[in-house]
């Protein structure tokens, strides 16, 4: 088990180094960073001095080494537009994005599993067909459109929910949360639905398909032959077996929820990392873009690792094959 975790961790580090190369090369291909920092009338000597002080004259490999060493300590340099350390900027914005992503994922998991189980067990009911239709909408409508439609309905027409921003937030250490105030909670509803709807329909379809598959297996037939109650068969046996692949997909999707948050955050002017990134792109603020790339990759890789480990907890067969293989 430990060897398995270790091996996966080493693989994860390999992935991060590869991402580091891409992120580093952004600096080299997006023009001369010195030009971004100085004004028009800076002399050649001053430019050379800046170049010297930033170490831009060193060989590429040395620069890359320095970049990786700094990145490993979460130092991503100074933002061109804000003149502040990128790490501080990201940390400041992270709680907003994470809260949004977590709420969206919880919404997607709850809704997706409930609807999926229902439409698998009551396949021919009207409600099951309605769920299927909704899922088609959720999968095919683009996120920004859903966001705009929600704003139009609940903010503009009905005036129930705020159309942008995070509402009032409470500071807990460096973390800011909108979960403790009413306006924060209200502000969270529409962005969460917008961000989570696609995942919800995905999970719903997956749960439905898996559940139908599991219901056909021998051990479900045997469970029925043992006279277990329908409830025990559906929720004790079938659902747990269904959840194994669902955990993987939902876990991996959490990464893309954070990545997709860019669009949702833009639509709702949500003060998270995604919005920061969009602004960075507009202003060619490469340190932020590079750091954001590293950050999202780190989240993806970490989630992958966690999902692999979770897998072995849910499915005992993997536990022993894992320990036997090493």
């Amino acid at each position: 088990m430990l060897a398995f975790t270790l091996r996966r961790a080493i693989q994860a580090i390999g992935v991060m180094i590869a991402v580091g190369i891409i992120s580093f090369s952004m600096f080299r291909f997006a023009g001369d960073p010195v030009n971004q920092m100085v004004s028009m009338d800076t002399s050649g000597a001053e430019r050379a001095a800046i170049r010297q002080s930033l170490g831009l004259d060193d060989p590429v490999i040395v620069q890359f080494g320095r970049y990786v060493a700094n990145a490993a300590q979460f130092k991503f340099g100074i933002s061109y537009q804000f003149r502040l350390p990128v790490t501080n900027l990201l940390m400041e914005r992270m709680p907003a994005t994470l809260e949004l992503a977590i709420c969206a994922t919880i919404f997607a998991m709850l809704g997706g599993i409930l609807m999926g189980v229902y439409s698998a067990l009551r396949r021919d009911t009207l409600l099951a067909h309605a769920f299927q239709a909704i899922s088609l909408i959720g999968i095919s409508l683009p996120t920004f459109l859903i966001g705009i439609l929600l704003i139009y309905l609940f903010s503009v027409t009905l005036g129930w929910l705020p159309s942008f921003g995070r509402g009032d937030v409470v500071h807990i250490g460096w973390w800011t949360t909108g979960l403790l105030t009413l306006s924060g909670l209200k502000a969270l509803i529409m962005p969460s639905i917008t961000l989570g709807l696609f995942q919800m329909t995905l999970i719903m379809r997956l749960v439905r398909a898996e559940m139908l598959e599991v219901m056909r297996t021998d051990y479900i037939r045997f469970a029925r032959a043992r006279g277990l109650t329908t409830r025990a068969i559906h929720f004790g046996h079938a659902l747990r077996n269904t959840l194994v692949p669902v955990i993987t997909v939902a876990g991996l999707q959490f990464g893309s929820v954070i990545a997709f948050a860019i669009i949702t955050e833009t639509v709702f002017q949500w003060p998270g990392m995604g919005l920061l990134f969009v602004q960075a792109v507009q202003n060619v603020d490469i340190p932020i873009m590079a750091a954001y790339l590293m950050m999202v990759s780190l989240i993806f890789v970490t989630i992958n690792l966690v999902v692999d480990i979770l897998y072995t907890i849910v499915d005992p067969r993997l536990r022993s094959t894992v320990s036997r293989a090493h």
Binding site: T217, Y219, R221, F222, V244
Partner: peptide, 25 residues
């Protein structure tokens, strides 16, 4: 009929490898 199954009639299926739920002791 569910109460009869397992209580008054026991059943053994062909493939023992797939008859048991793999996730439960």
């Amino acid at each position: 009929m569910r109460r009869v199954r397992g209580k008054r009639i026991g059943m053994i299926f062909q493939d023992p490898l797939t008859s048991l739920n793999p996730l439960y002791k």
